[in-house]
Design a protein around this nucleic acid. Structure first.
Lengths: 250, 250
DNA sequence: TCAAAAGTGTTGTGTGTACACCCATGT
DNA sequence: ACATGGGTGTACACACAACACTTTTGA
């Protein structure tokens, strides 16, 4: 082992600079000989508004699909991690920040973008839309929340991506603690139940839901109650767990 | 609507070729102005041999990580789908073909490859290793099956990728019908149970396992039995379902 | 006093788990 | 006859589903 290493070092020591350059170019040959695709990130950002699940869309300013609605996203820079790129693009294009992103899937159909070969790594996240101000960047004409189940014609293959994200979201809700990301820090049990009903798109039994949530040690009660409501005030709860933790919920 | 289209066509009709070229270059500006990363696929191919889970590895011929074991994989060509690339690389590097691949995750740490920025889309698959002949391509020194839980030092971030694949594999086995991919077309219930015990790495109760499998309508019995065994022959079964179908099994 | 949502238990049904013995074959 | 894995049933515990009435507040 040691002998070999010494030998190798020696070999390099007496090489001319050109030989070393050639050596390097040989070594990187397989990397540089191919054309490279572009890589983008696309983001599925969900929230709940008016008792409906919404997704964040941007209106495209430029060709291709100029004027169409699309998922926010953009090109990955050479020196940044994929998730970093996603966070950056989201902030740049929409003004939304501080979200916990999760990777969804990578879409690589060679024809999905007419400009060139573009491979897109899709991410998704859930946020509380209260207090978030959307500000379209110079790259897009507009940003808005759209009901996630509206069959809008999106740019590129973004309909497919969104469909996939919605599927994953349902699964995540049943098996992890992500639902709490859609709620304020302090929430009522009915609000929590609504989140499940909206995303899973089915009615749930109040008593069974509460029994289940209580049995899971997910939340702790506070001594605060909803105020100024025209009915009995509801106790507020807080989530005990880390976001995204895996727990079988429903 | 119709009016707009006519207008656009007219606009182009009277443009000089140069104007059109400029137009196109403006349109594609955002795509071409960035350096592009390379994109690879990496494959986690699993099988069962000698009552142990094995993963397919190749020994690297060239820098970087020359001589180290790595997951098979390689660069995605400009005109091929990601999964196509995975299938091609697998066949080229190892001789393995006809596998049902599933996408795992995309790894994009900027430093994961010392040559340049390389983003890797990881895939995984389960195969029956009986009858598969491994033949290393000219790109690699060797190909072999390695026990999946052996803590081998792999090239790049392949240890991390493999760990992730093993986790996903366990999940897949419990919630889908992938286990059958590790078995011959006709198999005994004990063989099926072994697959679960090996991958999940825990003993299962024979009677409960059979009861569960039978209740799920996954398999149909044949009238064939194992032959030449030094004990009571076992009935052979076949899978009724499509591979990868989602069914809660354990 | 009415409207509106909050909050609270019991019972039946089905599913998972633990557990031990006889059977068919080859040597 | 013995070693080896094949094949089968029951009892208990626990989780899930269905279901209705009282409480508290503001208007």
């Amino acid at each position: 082992m040691k002998d070999k290493k010494t030998k190798k070092e020696k070999a390099y020591k007496y090489c001319s600079l050109d030989t070393i350059r050639m050596e390097i170019s040989k070594k990187t040959y397989d990397v540089t000989k191919y054309d490279r695709p572009s890589v983008t990130v696309d983001l599925n950002i969900f929230t709940i508004q008016h008792n409906e699940l919404h997704v964040l869309l941007v209106k495209r300013k430029a060709w291709p699909h100029k004027g169409k609605w699309a998922l926010p996203g953009g090109f990955v820079h050479m020196d940044e991690d994929l998730e970093q790129a996603a966070v950056r693009e989201l902030k740049e294009e929409t003004g939304v920040k501080d979200v916990y992103l999760e990777q969804l899937y990578t879409f690589g159909n060679p024809k999905r973008d007419p400009r060139t070969r573009v491979i897109s790594v899709a991410y998704y996240a859930l946020i509380r839309s209260k207090g978030v101000t959307l500000k379209p960047s110079t790259d897009v004409v507009d940003v808005k929340w759209v009901p996630a189940y509206d069959l809008l014609q999106l740019a590129f293959d973004h309909n497919e991506i969104l469909k996939y994200a919605l599927q994953r979201l349902k699964w995540k809700l049943e098996y992890t603690t992500v639902a709490f990301q859609l709620l304020p820090k302090k929430f009522t049990l009915t609000q929590l139940q609504k989140v499940y009903e909206i995303v899973l798109n089915k009615k749930l039994d109040k008593r069974n839901f509460r029994k289940k949530i209580n049995s899971l040690d997910l939340i702790k009660e506070t001594n605060e109650y909803t105020e100024d409501v025209a009915h009995r005030p509801a106790r507020l709860y807080m989530c005990k767990r880390k976001i995204g933790e895996i727990v079988e919920i429903l």
